[in-house]
Amino acid sequence: MEKLLDVRDLRTYFYTYRGVVKALNGVYLTIKDGEVVGLVGETGSGKSVTARSIMRLIDPPGRIVGGNVFFEGRDLLKLSDREMTKIRGRKISMIFQEPIIALNPVLTIRTQIIETIMANRDVSVNEAEEIALELLEAVGLPNPKMIMKRYPFELSGGMAQRVFIAMAISANPRLLIADEPTSSLDVTIQAQILDLLNRLMEEGRISSMLYITHDLGVAAELCHRIAVMYGGRVIEFASTEEIFKEPLHPYTRSLLKAIPRLGYYDELYTIPGRVPDLVNPPSGCMFHPRCPYMKDVCKKEIPEYVEIDNSHYVACHFAGVKDVR
């Protein structure tokens, strides 16, 4: 399979009053055509910033300071703003964590969905209206005509997310970036949205997807491969099977232990320590203060991101050494 998206050494910094927040410190990530990749990590690990950097939606004081984002062979970071506008919505589209605030509060759903369709497809208003109705139906919204007249605050979170998904798939993009699309929703609604995404993939309305979540369990259900982020880097990237069967990074192992199993919430394992401060990050491997297997070298040198086994990437000094633990 060919690489649809190839992110290399992506670095995004935020220049705040506190200092420079190095949100991304060299992210590597690939997505093949037709594949669903999960991007997993704690809050503040850089998942959302990665998604927004790929879309080039970083606002000041943030800036993408280095790296490449190859999409269909072209480096998105080198495109003009005008060319990038043609990528967004047509080739890559995105759905957001909080659908209600991602919809403009003073415009009707009709205005927002039709402007999206007309921005990305060469159709008239009437055609766009028909497409919109068909899409709203396809994402499982009853009575699309009513929905079109509503304002965002008149919708529930689940309905708003469905509207957003309808807009995102309206131009049949090659890649859909889903930035924690269910984490602001009720548990039952979360399951419905996941079902919807699965169904849309089966129907071929979504071809490839980057699914961002802090929940390894959800990622396992949906994704072919999983990338684990920590401190602004991808520290392990492998097929879902391998991540679960043979995790190589100590952080991934801790995450697996932390997955809540039904009935065991009380004994939930949490990873000791805190998420690293990205203004003054720890020296060497960023995970070393929390790592149970920490050695001297971990404090001094940043581990390189390397391919250990066939397509199993990891950034840890002792990834290949099995007997450290």
Binding site: R11, Y13, Y15, R63, V65
Partner: peptide, 18 residues
């Protein structure tokens, strides 16, 4: 070069903030 390229850009942006 890689490391210092980032550093040079850092300085420039910090100047903007000042």
């Amino acid at each position: 070069l890689m490391e210092h390229k980032y550093k040079i850009q850092d300085v420039k942006l910090m100047m903007n903030m000042i």
